[in-house]
Design a protein around this nucleic acid. Structure first.
Lengths: 210, 210
DNA sequence: TATAGTAACCTACTTATAGTAGTTTACTAC
DNA sequence: GTAGTAAACTACTATAAGTAGGTTACTATA
């Protein structure tokens, strides 16, 4: 991602006196500018008119070069997805044991998110603002339910509330992701899915508490 | 959710000859019609003009009664969130052991999703179509990476590929959800988060394989 | 039974934004 | 210096959220 940086490109562009900039350079400028804009405002709250203003070019130029708002977003999404993928893959490859691979992969992921917080949010999670607070509230309630379950089970009796809250959210995310995956495997019964996650967390041949 | 059903309400409405229907009844009709529309087309692809057509009323009536498109969506989202919450809570309360509570809660969740597939997707996951395929592709790649990790570790050697794929998606969902939760706890280090999930899956005082 | 008040509803607009048709400008090759 | 073309522009259309201001029909009271 950002193999070229925006400053660099704009410096090159400033060499063209009368504003007629080669296609590829202009595309790079547009995509990078759009990435910042999407990160700041999300997809819906970003407009192509504003993008045109930021790039200091008229709208048809943008449409000529990147096709559509959708397509522009997809380009940015795909590129970021690829970089994320590569970084995780490299991290996993360089570790040896299962445990260290899991740690390294997770670390690579969280570092990526840390470096690109706003962008990651805008690309992979939600469309800036609109309902994120409402969904966050619902998730929080679900997670509180799970937190209570964990606490009352004494499974994590020496753990901090922060840790338990985080784990509860992670667990909810697992259920949610499995439900999304389920759309492509509709023949599976709800009971089966519930068992999968339960057994993942509480292997039947192991004591429940630790 | 849908404490009243649409047919019922429209039957009551048809009693009013000249189309002047009491506020509350009209609101119920609008909300239920909108719920169907959002489930079919998602938020962005649903228009208030179409809603007005479906309800057979002019647009200002709808704005008078539900305020805005945002607000309408939030009403539906919140109500669905509450029902989901209640169903999981009831299921958990009625079970006794930690394991049975996890199973029952999970089952309640997956049953809810099964009963309201399209609506659940539209409300909690994404905005119909636009980028869901692109994000799904990225998730699939991440999950394949995790699947390979799982397979090569021999941790699940007797498991079907379908199961492994599902678990991999669930695991990715856990990372993603934890990253979202992280926005409210920015002081935590990436290493810490990576360790949390690793230890959840591979408790250090237990053998790695089972 | 006439009429005042109001709840429910309407037509016709404004504003914002994605996307396009058709034209103009400046650099390049001969 | 002129022809061709790449890069850019102005000015439009279409769709959709949201609103201003007016109309209709039911209800209560004289």
């Amino acid at each position: 991602m950002s193999r070229e940086n925006l400053k660099n490109i704009e410096k090159q562009i400033s060499a063209y006196k009368h504003g007629k900039v080669p296609k590829e350079l202009r595309i790079a400028q547009i995509v990078l500018t759009a990435r910042t804009m999407f990160a700041q405002n999300g997809y819906t709250n970003s407009s192509m008119d504003e993008l045109a203003k930021r790039v200091k070019v008229s709208k048809p130029v943008i449409y000529e070069l990147v096709g559509s708002k959708d397509n522009l977003f997809k380009m940015i999404l795909t590129e970021a997805g690829q970089e994320l993928q590569e970084r995780i893959q490299n991290a996993v490859d360089q570790a040896s044991s299962l445990e260290s691979k899991l740690k390294a992969g997770g670390l690579a992921f969280f570092n990526f998110v840390k470096e690109h917080r706003q962008l990651w949010l805008a690309l992979f999670v939600n469309d800036q603002g609109l309902f994120s607070k409402d969904i966050a509230l619902i998730r929080k309630e679900q997670s509180d339910l799970v937190s209570n379950l964990i606490v009352s089970s004494n499974a994590f009796e020496n753990s901090s509330l922060t840790y338990i809250s985080g784990i509860a959210h992670a667990l909810n995310g697992a259920y949610e992701a499995l439900a999304i995956w389920w759309f492509d495997h509709p023949e599976i019964e709800p009971e089966t899915l519930a068992n999968w996650i339960t057994e993942l967390l509480l292997p039947t041949d192991l004591p429940l508490n630790r």
